[in-house]
Amino acid sequence: MKLLIASVSAALLLPPGAPGQGKPSPSPSSSAAPTRLAQVRIQQHIVIRVPRPDPVRRVATPAPAPLPPIAWVEQRADDCVAADSLSGAAIIRSDSVDLVLAGGRRVRAKLGNECPALDFYTGFYVKPNKDGKVCAKRDVFRSRSGGECRIKSFRTLTPGR
């Protein structure tokens, strides 16, 4: 398919001695001053090419089967996590938050019962203390709606078999 924008032409009537004619204007005393015509042509072509369908019929390949979810095994962990090692978080269960640490390690922060839904506003805040750590039984996760979730304990997560 081709699309063509037609040419635009304009004829301008220029009086004698008008700027842009290239010749000096005749003296006003001459009675036979010729009138000059000038023409401006603006032309633009746009070509849009639409490819034809491929004559060879393509067969869609099936999507790969999704991987089964990983069953994480909880193990004992320290009471504090360095705040600068936090690289991500996932709210998988209502009573905990899985923290992804630098290097790919995972830690589950177990929360108290009075915790409002953290995932309602997509995310939460955590403010480490002056020691640069987030600790259980001391620090809280703050939801974006204003609620607080006290951290009861941390558990190290390892993939189950």
Score class of each variant (00 low, 15 high):
P26F: 03
L37C: 01
S7R: 11
S87M: 12
P68S: 15
R76W: 01
P28Y: 05
R57I: 09
Q44V: 14
G112P: 00
P15S: 14
E74S: 11
A33Y: 00
A6V: 05
R52W: 05
Q21T: 10
P68E: 12
L13G: 12
A102Y: 01
D78S: 12
G112A: 12
P15G: 15
S27L: 12
P64Y: 04
I70Q: 06
A11K: 09
V40G: 12
A89R: 03
W72G: 06
K2E: 09
A83V: 06
R106I: 08
V107T: 10
P28K: 07
C80Q: 06
V50T: 09
S94K: 10
T61V: 14
S94T: 13
P55Q: 05
G22Y: 02
A77M: 02
A6Y: 02
G112Q: 04
P15E: 14
L67N: 05
A65D: 10
G20A: 08
A65S: 13
Q21E: 07
V8F: 09
Q21F: 01
E74R: 13
V47D: 07
P55N: 06
L101R: 13
I48F: 09
P24E: 10
K110C: 02
L4T: 11
S85K: 10
V59C: 02
V50W: 04
R106C: 05
P15M: 04
P34F: 03
K23P: 00
A6D: 10
D84L: 05
V47C: 00
K110M: 11
Q43F: 03
S31K: 12
P62R: 12
G20V: 05
V97Y: 07
A82K: 06
R52V: 08
G22M: 05
P16A: 15
S30P: 00
A38T: 15
P64A: 14
T35R: 09
V8L: 11
P51D: 14
P24D: 09
S31V: 08
P16M: 02
A90V: 13
A77L: 01
K110Y: 00
L13I: 08
I91K: 08
D78T: 07
Q75C: 01
D84M: 02
L13Y: 04
S29I: 11
A89S: 12
L99V: 13
V100F: 08
P64N: 07
T35C: 00
G22P: 05
A10D: 11
V100G: 06
G22L: 11
